[in-house]
Write a protein that binds this DNA or RNA. Structure first.
Length: 464
RNA sequence: GCCCGCUUAGCUCAGCGGUUAGAGCAUCUGGCUGUUAACCAGAGGGUCGCAGGUUCGAAUCCUGCAGCGGGCGCCA
């Protein structure tokens, strides 16, 4: 720290959040930050500073007889960064509780108003996506990324407190987690080369589409594990709900059956939502005012009642009895379409639902077959406004049954040797689920496009 | 991948066959006894996404392309 500019030592270097926590009224201090807006009148200028520590900004008052107005007008624009020193003064009769009466400032860097894209006004989210590198300078994205950080922390805290072990599963994988979408191939070969044995790993390699298969193997030794990391899908999905690179949380628990897992998923989600509600009320309030008036109510409603659980068969019956005409036909064996899920969640239940025991034909090979021979022990958690946030299942732990299932689907058994070994040696019932972080964040932030809840988005045809 | 919509000033948008294309905000200039998305007055700023076509005449109609957004599918 350089010596304080003519201020008594020790000088207070504080973040704006700390100021609002316990304002050192009457003290001399130094604040660093960026300008949100400036208002200049005849004798005095008002500069609103933010420093990222809180959504709130600090009003700095600059008297023109102290700091020349010409200097202020030429240097201090929206986006400019500076260090300013002065005395904190209480302003009980103004909209803000206190302000910094400046004695002087030093400019770090200007933001030329003729070319700096951000202005002291609301911009559309679409426009901001074109300048993703500047989005962190807006209150919206400060609120969203702050919540994203808090949610990530809450996820770790929840699992850690319940004795789960955080494991790092590989990002580079040799094979597909079947049914989870198209993969990005990773190679050091030149485009013309087709002999994969000459490739870096001596075989084909991909970016992971799920840590589940490795997670299962780790759970066979550690009991309860969870992954939390990036996941990649090369699916060319052009929707507000899909990213090519997104973050997924995948717990996997030895000795858990389907019911225990659904209980866990529900308790987990409620806990994360409650944590967000308790720790980010200012951010939620801001996002509600700007984007989703019902945000606080929606969060409250989800916490109020337990999730409604419906078997797939019951869900189909409800849809058939609804009297609705759906674009996609409803019959036992058909996958639930978005319109069906929306009816069940938003009109029938009016709260989150868990649909379980889906037909085995429409689900992945690793899901455990039920006694009825028709369904598998799987479940989806469906939320209002955003649809599926969690998909999970009890895994098929019986070696013969799993092997038959894989052979039916003509899968490359050799590629799954390690996975099959978990069933050959000391197999146990186990279950797990996957949570898409960005989708949960849509619910929690009121945003409606996943590109707006991740700092730098990668989606089909776009790298924000 | 399929379907729909949008693209006009830095931003948000109006204009939808007929003079030199408009507004608010931003920017710049001037004013204003402390402002709260400050306010008041003035100024600058546009190959109306790109390429063709129809027409006496196209921002406006048609075709193609591109970008963006949305719905659906796939999924988390």
């Amino acid at each position: 720290m350089q010596p304080a500019r003519g201020l008594p030592s020790p000088t207070l270097y504080l973040g704006i959040a700390e100021l609002f926590q316990s304002p050192p009224i009457g003290e001399k201090l130094i604040i660093r930050g960026w300008i949100r807006t400036r208002r200049t009148t005849r004798q005095v200028s008002f500069v609103e500073l933010y420093d990222g520590s809180t959504l709130r900004s600090l009003q700095v008052v600059m008297a023109h007889e102290q700091i020349p107005v010409e200097r202020i007008e030429s240097e201090l624009h929206t986006g400019s960064s500076l260090e300013v020193w002065g005395t904190l003064q209480a302003t009980p009769n103004r909209p803000q509780p206190f302000e910094l009466v400046a004695e002087g400032y030093q400019l770090y860097g200007q933001a030329d108003p003729e070319v700096y894209p951000l202005q002291k006004k609301a911009h559309s989210l679409e426009f901001l996506r074109e300048i993703a590198h500047l989005r962190p300078r807006t209150r919206t994205f400060q609120a969203v990324f702050r919540i994203r950080s808090g949610v990530s922390f809450a996820i770790h805290q929840y699992f850690q407190e319940q004795g789960f072990v955080y494991v790092h599963t590989p990002i580079l994988t040799p094979s597909d987690c079947e049914g989870a979408g198209q993969l990005f191939r990773v190679t050091t070969l030149s485009p013309q080369e087709t002999d994969f044995t000459k490739d870096f790993f001596g075989r084909t390699a991909y970016l992971t589409v799920s840590g589940q298969l490795e997670g299962e193997q780790l759970a066979m030794g550690l009991g309860k594990i969870y992954t939390f990391g990036p996941t990649f899908r090369a699916e060319p999905s052009h929707t507000p709900r899909h990213l090519a690179e997104f973050w997924m949380i995948e717990p996997e628990m030895a000795f858990y059956d389907l019911t225990m897992t659904m209980d866990l998923a529900e308790d987990f989600l409620r806990s994360i939502i409650r944590h967000t509600q308790a720790h980010f009320s200012e951010e939620l309030q801001f996002l509600a005012e700007r984007y989703e008036p019902q945000l606080l109510t929606q969060i409250e409603n989800v916490l109020k009642e337990s999730f409604l659980r419906l078997s797939y068969t019951e869900a189909i019956e409800l849809l058939e009895k609804s009297g609705r005409r759906f674009e996609y036909p409803v019959y036992w064996g058909a996958d639930l379409q978005a319109e069906h899920e929306r009816y069940l969640v938003e009109e029938y239940a009016r709260r989150p639902i868990i649909v379980y025991n889906y037909p085995k034909a429409i689900k992945a090979f690793y899901m455990r077959q039920n006694e009825d021979g028709k369904t598998v022990a799987s479940f989806d958690v469906l939320f209002p406004r955003i649809g599926e946030v969690i998909g999970g299942s009890q895994r098929e732990e019986r070696y013969e049954v799993l092997l038959n299932r894989m052979e039916e689907r003509r899968m490359d058994l050799f590629a799954y040797k390690g996975y099959l070994d978990t069933r050959r040696f000391g197999t146990v019932p186990h279950s797990g689920f996957g949570l898409g972080l960005e989708r949960l964040l849509l619910f929690l932030t009121g945003m409606s496009n996943v590109r707006d809840v991740i700092p730098f988005f990668r989606a089909a045809g776009q790298m924000g």
